[in-house]
Structures are given as C-alpha cells and as structure tokens.
C-alpha cells in the first residue's frame, strides 16, 4: 500500500515535470496528431504543412519580439498596428513612387522607431506598458486610417522588388521567411543564453528592484526589448507584404492576440523573467496549426476568434494551476 502510494507520487511528479517544462512540445505533438486524425490526413499533406510553416514564420517573428517584451514584465499590444504601419509605409512608398527598396527600408525603420518610442515612454514615464502600447495601438490605427482611408491599397512595385530580392537569393517566399525566422530565433536564443543583454533581460523580468541594485541598466534593457519588438513586427510585415500584395486598415489586427497566445503557449510567464525563444517558436507553430485546422474543419470564421480566446484562457489557467501544484509539493 505504502509502496503504491510512493510510486503514484513519483509517476505524478514525472508527469508534472514533463508538463511544466515541456508543455509546448506536448501540445505541439498532441495537436499534430489530433489534427491529422480529425482532418483525415488533409492536415499532414506537405502542401498544407508548407502553408502552416509560412504562417507560423510570420507569426513567429512577431511573437519573438513579443516574447522579449513579455520577459521584461511588460506587454506589447501594438505589434498588430506596427505591422499595419509598416504596410502603410510601403503603400505610401508606392503612392509617392520612391524607389521600392528604400520604401521597404523605411517601413522597417518606421516600425523600429515606433518600438523605440514605446520603450522610451514606458521607461521614462513609468506608465503601465499595456496602457502605453494600447495608446500607441490606437494612435497608429488612427494614423493608418487617415492615410489609407477605408479602401484597400495595392503595391505591385514593392511586390516586384521583393520578388527580385528572392530571385537574387534563389529562394522561395516560404523558405526565405522561414529562414529569416530561424535565424532570428537562433540569434535570440544565443543572445539569451550567452550575452549580457540576455542575462539582464531575465534579471529585469524576474526581480526589477534586485537587478537595479546589482547594477543592471534596466532602462536600456527595456528600451532595447521594445525596439526589437518593433523591428521584428516590421520585418514580419515586409515578409507578409509579398503574399498580401496590398494592405487595408485591418491588415495586422490578428497579430496582437496571436502573438500573445504564442508567447503564452510557448511557456513564457506573463509576469516576466521566464521564457525561451525555442518554446516561443514552437508556440507560434502551435497557434498557426490551430488556425489552419479550424479552417480545414470549416469552423465558422466568426467563431474561431471566440475559440482562440477560450484556448488562451484555458492555457494560462492550466499553467498557473501547475505552478501552484509545484508550490504545494
């Protein structure tokens, strides 16, 4: 009797350990297998998986930036509108007929600048990050609406420029964006592991006051993380620009929430200080797979939003519960 209890306890501990530390991978394989079965094999066809990879590479870039911000204990609600902003800048470039390459660089630069601005406002005024980025979101959306109006706008010249870049590199659209995503993720991974900035990032999120006293320049870390988030969202927008071929006001509206979902599923604590870029990358694939499988199963697109909301809630609640279990034992 006694032995049984002990064994049960050990088994429970192992399961808990796996779920706590590798929950992303468990979720990933679960969804892969369940989707494959439920969709009767459509989901695991190469063409479909390729489409999922394209989607998750763009989402993954945005989520990576989101992760850097969340690790410092903040949140960036403006990633979606930053994404739209970059597309709007490219549309402006098309409209004013400047060199498309310059327009692309301006789009990335514009996103980075707004990210920098977010960081500076958060650091200097000490307003809650989600209020600052929420305000930025509103301002940017209003800006996009003022420039674009209610109509959709196409930018064939920009598309042509992106195509010629791809031809120059002899790369497919999907391969290029996946490659960029992999590079960005691995750079972030090594940065988090081995660089001072990475260590400071964990320190700032974990215990702000303690890290101030141990000489970490929190302001610099925070500003850098918001700037990176702006840069990565803008980069994702450029990657998506070829596929979209144009923009409208709501172009980036889904990314704000999807990136938070990916970050949460990827095992990053919303209270800061805990996280891993690889987990976030897998998390973005999980979210992209979920969106894809809902489309395959013909789930009403209007209900998809609601389901996504419930999934995020359930996931955060579950991980909080697991955290609580650890404290008890």
């Amino acid at each position: 009797m006694k032995v049984e209890r002990k064994e049960e306890r050990i088994a429970l501990k192992i399961i808990l350990y796996i779920f706590r530390n590798y929950s992303v991978y468990v979720t990933f394989f679960l969804i892969l297998i369940v989707s494959g079965i439920v969709s009767r094999g459509i989901f695991i066809r190469p063409t479909n998986l390729w489409a999922v990879m394209l989607r998750s590479s763009i989402l993954g870039l945005v989520s990576l930036g989101q992760m850097l911000v969340v690790m410092t204990g903040g949140i960036d609600l403006s990633v979606g509108s930053l994404f739209s902003l970059s597309l709007t800048i490219m549309a402006l470039g098309e409209f004013t007929r400047i060199n498309p390459y310059i327009a692309i660089i301006l789009a990335i630069g514009g996103g980075t600048m707004v990210g920098l601005l977010n960081g500076i406002i958060v650091v200097t005024t000490k307003i809650y990050p989600f209020i600052v980025t929420f305000a930025t979101m509103m301002i940017l959306e209003s800006f996009n609406l003022t420039i674009l109006g209610a109509a959709a706008f196409n930018f064939p010249t920009i598309q042509g420029a992106l195509l010629s870049i791809m031809n120059f590199l002899h790369l497919d659209e999907t391969i290029l964006s996946v490659a960029l995503w992999v590079i960005a993720t691995s750079v972030t991974f090594f940065m988090c592991r081995y660089s001072t900035f990475g260590h400071n990032l964990y320190a700032a999120g974990g215990n702000e006051i303690a890290s101030v006293f141990s000489g970490v320049n929190i302001k610099k870390v925070k500003i850098l993380s918001y700037t990176c988030s702006g840069f990565l969202s803008a980069l994702a927008a450029v990657m998506a620009a070829y596929r979209l071929g144009g923009t409208n006001v709501g172009a980036g509206s889904g990314y704000q929430l999807n990136s938070i979902a990916a970050v949460v599923v990827g095992g990053v604590s919303l209270y800061g200080g805990v996280g891993n870029p690889i987990g976030v990358a897998i998390g973005s694939i999980v979210i992209a797979m979920l969106l894809n499988i809902m489309n395959i199963l013909n789930v009403d697109p209007f209900i998809q939003n609601a389901i996504q909301g419930l999934i995020i809630l359930g996931y955060v609640a579950l991980s909080n519960y697991l955290q609580w279990l650890r404290l008890e034992r």
Partner: peptide, 8 residues
C-alpha cells in the same frame, strides 16, 4: 485562476 486581468 489568477490569469492577469488584461489577458482574461
């Protein structure tokens, strides 16, 4: 469930 309010 202690989910941060703005996420919930």
């Amino acid at each position: 469930c202690k989910v941060p309010p703005f996420i919930s």
